[in-house]
Design a protein around this nucleic acid. Structure first.
Lengths: 133, 133
DNA sequence: TACAATTATGTAATGTTATTACATATGTTG
DNA sequence: CAACATATGTAATAACATTACATAATTGTA
């Protein structure tokens, strides 16, 4: 058995590449890694990425224009809150976390103003412990 | 007197365009708006944007690849904390705010892990009160 | 099974965002 | 003024993403 059922061939290939990477990958890097699997055009990657995002199996890092596999696939914590990322500018490593207090504070702010949130991005760029040392 | 002293001609022109806009603008839209002022190439815009970002007079919206004038220029609140944005997907309007509790929670998280933050992005995409109604 | 509808895929072309490289000008300081 | 740093002009190219159109595979159902 491969990664996860209910995925199409291309989705499974793209997810596999992301899972094996220890840093975020751009769509074009993914494309290059899948040339040998028959990928020829960006759209093949972007379509798979869209579906994987829908299914919550990957995340898009807006400040990087790149993608990572979800670190908590299957766990319940992912399902009820905004995911935050700490991204090392030196080694590229990404830590995924979430914080209920942050969620609540942002929810309070939006609720007070009648703003209806759809998707929230929280990304901390900086240096991880190893690289800052 | 124009916008703000200590700005070069191009920086002042770009900042002016952003201040007059009620929605974020991409670098290329700014370029088009400044053709009559002698702008010919993207780099003229990007260089001005870089300097304005350094000076804290504008913000870059990562989820939009676009730029807005800082809503709190000159106020002290801006200087000690991460700025957050609520961005309406319908009308494009952006609300800028900041929240000390959120800042503290994120600082606690990074401190506990030895992560040294350099720049934090918080962007809430959704529908503003008017558009959600 | 056969059919229709939906979903996934392949390919090319194009659109949008951002940077590199190189030349020239302007401003500041000793 | 000379040396240095900063700002600007221009062209080319790189990186990221979408539109348009054609074909194949899958799914639901009569």
């Amino acid at each position: 058995m491969t990664s996860t059922p209910t995925l199409t061939k291309n989705q499974d290939l793209v997810l596999g590449v992301l899972k094996r990477s220890d840093a975020p990958l751009s769509a074009y890097v993914i494309l290059d890694k899948l040339r040998d699997n028959g990928f020829r055009a960006p759209l093949q990657v972007y379509r798979a990425l869209d579906k994987l995002l829908e299914k919550g199996l990957i995340h898009r890092l807006e400040s990087l224009n790149a993608f990572v596999a979800c670190a908590h696939s299957g766990e319940s914590c992912c399902s009820h809150g905004t995911v935050a990322f700490a991204i090392c500018n030196a080694c590229g490593h990404v830590m995924e976390f979430h914080d209920h207090t942050v969620d609540h504070r942002l929810a309070d702010w939006t609720k007070a103003r009648g703003f209806k949130p759809e998707k929230t991005t929280i990304e901390i760029r900086g240096l991880c412990a190893s690289c800052a040392a």
